[in-house]
Nucleic acid binder design. Structure first.
Lengths: 199, 199, 199, 199
DNA sequence: CTATAACCGAGACGGTACGTCCGGTCTTACG
DNA sequence: CGTAAGACCGGACGTACCGTCTCGGTTATAG
């Protein structure tokens, strides 16, 4: 399609796109998901509502794109040659991302919204979660390959537990998500994954 | 207040209360939380909207009461004298609760809704989550007392990780929540909590 | 129905009704039919749009009622015992009604709107036109009874021609509708209707 | 301008013009004026909206051109040497034009639209109405010249009454417009215009 | 046995936002 | 330069619910 569609008609206005995303992010700083109105976004971005509905189709998709845009794009995992250090470093960075109130609240709202919209849940997993899982997975796989971690570690299950703890705290507000949390979590879990016969 | 308010005027109509809760549960079978309208509930229950607002104050409280009423509410933890066995048994029962689709979906909807309503989140934690945490906590505390588990185990953090894994799967649908999941989770986490110098 | 419906629910708010009609009339002074927005009326009357849609169903019916309310309700025809004088007096009053710019423009807009809405045309004829026709008809019938007018006068056709002339000028703006017009019209038509053998 | 503008650039595409007019007429068969959208016309004619706005400037002008093109446009008045016969013949032909439903509806829609657009009303009078008035006027003038009609007849006023009766019936649907109507109208009005001392 | 009080159903109300439609303008690439 | 395609801003549409507000009527206790 792309090669055979030689651009007919006026092309999409990139400036509007940017203004919409910017307005969305700005409003998310002060407004909660549920009180955030498409009309408000459109007014703030000086844009017709149709333009939003045309390109995003609804609040969910728009907010997700806005949120992902504003997050540091690169989800990367260090490779220092030490699995524990890499794991800790990755989780510390994750905690930093979530402690920024607006970002954390937005992510919570996204997963919440996904509970009422299977298609959106699918999108959320593909665009956000899988990237994060892959980063953590690579840390663990390297550790296994180097013999630092259990050969038969159930990587996916471990990721569930670690990310689960983060989301659990984020969604219930039971306790803070900070570097100390990351450290304690790694410290607690370490015996469950380190290769036998190692420290 | 109770003693000094000797009940004057017509008493609350219990039948209306029951019809409202029933209508809410019935509608939740077919409608998602967000598209469920108070007006629809009132119409279905043949009740004035005011009655709902008077006794519950809003959708959140109503749905929570309706949902928790319909859930089997007893949470108990065995005490067989063996921490690992108790833990496994508790988590298996938890998985059974969640795999029933309707219950799982309702809980997911509740935590989702709580993201837009701090007061409701508070209520949810008190009425649902704390009970569950306490049950798991007692299992762990007993294990520690018996010397089966690490003396300095961070109990709350461990609970975060375990319940986190459950919620994470529930909310993202990444993988099934079943007995096998409970077993694998316990098996993986066991080395992280068992007392040193034990099997 | 009226006798057997013992007023259930909150009764219609007459003040809102009045405010809506007033706002409509006020806006019609400054705005043309086509640029008159329901939203503007609602805002001006401090009223929800639903209230308008509920009781009138649309712009047409609302404007018609507003217009009829603002017109002198009584459409009456004098009975001085002289058909020509009664006729002239009635048409002079009609011309006065239409020369008030806003009223004339509104009536023109109503008949225009009716061209796109048969049901509304029906309503317009019943609520506005038939009343006017009946008034003129009574003048003519009395004249016939007294022997002043032709015994076999085609009353309805004559009304068509007279009212037609008014509407024609109103809709095309070809010439003014004023007392002079009424006089000239009567003077011209008189020989067509007076009984033979009279002056 | 014409001589000094030696036609630079691509000339107007006559095929588009034709397709637009055709599409407009086709759509007017099934859609009412007010629900007829420029976008729909453009889509049906496979034409850019701009082309319509460029050459017609709006819906009114376009529809008028489309409508008048499709009407048989020749208006002529016989000259048989007998005013009454000429008058009758002209009005019978007029009634025939209007009884064809589509034509009558279109004319009604045109005059209706003109109520919201003074410029369009002006255009309508020039392109449609004045021609008709002139035809009738010539019949009357000849009658006066021949002494058949009143020397001091107010010709324009008489035309208002006659055409008014036609438009009135067309717009209100009060009664049919047919040859019988033309005959009765002439018969009734005749005494009002025939020269004194004649039959 | 009557007040007095609170509850209840019905449903009208002022509002806010929804998602859609269309008007009129603009910006491309192609003839 | 004219044109088809189509994106854009803006404004109003008619609808859905929100949470509040009367109503008439019902069901209790208190006098």
């Amino acid at each position: 399609m792309s090669p055979s569609a030689p651009q007919v008609g006026r092309p999409r206005c990139e400036e509007s796109r940017a203004r919409i995303l910017a307005a969305t992010n700005a409003l998310l700083e002060t407004t909660s998901w549920s009180t955030l109105a498409i009309e408000t976004i459109a007014a703030r971005a000086r844009v017709g509502k149709q333009t939003i509905y045309k390109w995003w189709g609804g609040k969910s998709a728009l907010v997700m794109e806005a949120a992902l845009t504003s997050l540091e794009i690169e989800v990367f995992a260090d490779d220092t040659g030490n699995a524990k250090r890499d794991l800790l470093s990755f989780l510390k960075r994750s905690s930093k991302l979530l402690r920024d109130t607006a970002t954390g609240r937005t992510l919570a709202a996204l997963i919440a919204e996904a509970q009422n919209d299977p298609a959106f849940l699918q999108m959320f997993r593909e665009q956000f979660q899988n990237v994060r899982r892959e980063a953590l997975r690579s840390v663990l796989k390297r550790g296994i390959a180097r013999g630092e971690l259990l050969e038969d570690l159930d990587v996916e299950l471990f990721i569930d537990a670690v990310f689960g703890a983060f989301w659990y705290r984020l969604l219930t507000g039971r306790a803070a998500i900070n570097e100390r949390f990351a450290e304690q979590l790694v410290e607690m879990m370490w015996p469950a994954i380190r290769a036998k016969g190692r420290a």
